[in-house]
């Protein structure tokens, strides 16, 4: 996983609430077997409309998404996170994320930042007034900075450390292999196994 420390970029304001994972990436795009290339399917239905915010020239290359509340509801598809990353987004700001989406994003290295809705509205207003204005997400200080405004945000220590150091969960867990083995030694023998396959 890539590290996330401080990122500065221009903003895409997505003034919509309840953006579900079917809107972020429709099922027909889920057939790829690689982890890349999902950017094509990002907001596929909306991107057919020329005036959709992502299609506007002044938003080209902007990599900070600032969305309305309840972002990422619906299915568990992590492809929604990959699509955002593959398209180029490094971070998403919203006042409320769906549980599974938020978990997936932090695991995959897409920083989801929770800010109160008033601050989201302020950011929308600033970027709409001047699309070239840059926003900084500083995970070290746990701050969002834009123009002369500074907003503090919360992230639990565990997730923050993982992102700062670019640690993936698997390497962390492997540090505790002895504990896993100790647990396995205590599992009751009646617990089922899929292998070997029983003969009918």
């Amino acid at each position: 996983m890539d590290k996330f420390t401080v990122h500065t970029g221009r903003v895409v304001p997505l003034r919509l609430s309840n953006v579900d994972t079917d809107q972020i990436i429709p099922a027909e795009y889920l057939k790829r077997v690689t982890r890349t290339g999902f950017g094509d399917g990002l907001f596929a239905v909306w991107r057919d409309q020329p005036d959709f915010v992502l299609n506007r020239t002044e938003r080209a290359g902007a990599d900070v998404l600032v969305a309305g509340p309840e972002f990422g509801t619906g299915s568990s598809r992590e492809h929604a996170v990959w699509a955002l990353q593959d398209y180029g987004f490094r971070t998403v700001l919203s006042s409320r994320f769906a549980d599974i989406f938020r978990g997936n994003s932090l695991k995959a290295g897409l920083l989801t930042v929770l800010l109160p809705q008033e601050q989201i509205e302020e950011i929308w207003a600033l970027t709409e007034a001047d699309p070239t204005v840059e926003l900084t997400v500083d995970l070290i200080e746990r701050q969002v900075r834009i123009a002369d405004r500074v907003f503090a945000f919360d992230l639990d220590d565990h997730s923050r450390r993982r992102l700062l150091e670019g640690l993936d969960d698997i390497s962390i867990t492997f540090q505790h292999l002895d504990e896993i083995e100790a647990y396995e030694a205590t599992r009751p023998s009646f617990k089922p196994r899929t292998l070997p396959v029983p003969v009918a």
């Binding site: 969960d169 867990t173 396995e184």
Partner: peptide
């Protein structure tokens, strides 16, 4: 419970999940 693909990889690799 349902999990995302990163977690699928985690379970395949370690048989555990944080």
């Amino acid at each position: 419970f349902g999990i995302g693909t990163s977690q699928v990889e985690h379970v395949l690799a370690t048989q555990t999940l944080p």
